[in-house]
């Protein structure tokens, strides 16, 4: 009976961990799940395994996940337009298209639990890149858009797929840059 209750709690916790939208909550649910699992091991006379499960599952892995979440929390986006101020926003890409694009990117970031920080600047691309703090640089020249993403960044691929599928008629190209400064043009949609 006791074991059945523990199994029920485990199933509920596993569902909660999958269904929750906030990753930090999922991490906590997984930690409690591991603790209940270690109770089950203890109940089945395996104290050795129970200790290992409790230590690794609910302490080490939880801390590791929290570390990972801390690292991927803030996503810096820079929107640069060198003709800023001389060109009216409205003329650039038919109406509110640009605002829509940035809002979409923001929404993807929020879905992935990243906190998007968008910076607008009229500075030229080279000086923006030299600062080296942006994960994604979106550059606009008249009516074409270039997205600069770091080569090691896993999120850029996802964003690229999304933009290609969603904005088929937009002139949009993607460039990857590395730490050494060389660029490789990837695709023009």
């Amino acid at each position: 009976m006791f074991e059945l209750i523990l199994f029920g709690i485990m199933i509920v916790l596993a569902f909660l961990a999958i269904e929750t939208n906030i990753l930090r909550k999922a991490v906590v649910f997984l930690g409690i799940f591991s603790l209940v699992t270690s109770f089950v091991y203890l109940y089945n006379n395996a104290p050795d395994v129970a200790i290992a499960e409790a230590v690794i599952g609910s302490a080490l892995v939880t801390l590791l996940y929290l570390t990972a979440l801390r690292r991927y929390k803030v996503y810096n986006i820079c929107f640069t337009n060198e003709e800023f101020g001389t060109v009216v926003d409205r003329n650039i890409i038919e109406g509110t298209r640009r605002g829509q694009l940035l809002r979409d990117i923001e929404n993807i970031c929020l879905n992935r639990e990243l906190e998007p920080q968008i910076v607008y600047t009229p500075d030229p691309l080279e000086s923006v890149k030299a600062r080296g703090i942006y994960d994604l640089i979106i550059r606009q020249e008249k009516d074409s858009i270039t997205v600069y993403g770091h080569r090691d960044n896993y999120f850029v691929d996802e964003l690229e797929m999304f933009l290609i599928l969603r904005y088929k008629d937009l002139e949009c190209s993607f460039v990857r840059f590395g730490d050494d400064g060389d660029d490789d043009e990837e695709q023009i949609a």
């Binding site: 104290p47 050795d48 302490a59 080490l60 929290l66 570390t67």
Partner: peptide
């Protein structure tokens, strides 16, 4: 305690070592 008593009570080197590692990792948090 878990490491030193590992030879005749539950636990042992691996479990005790993992517990000691949580000290360092908790310090990082």
């Amino acid at each position: 305690y878990i490491i030193v008593n590992g030879h005749n009570t539950p636990g042992g080197g691996f479990q005790g070592g993992a517990i000691l590692a949580t000290v360092f990792i908790g310090r990082y948090i």
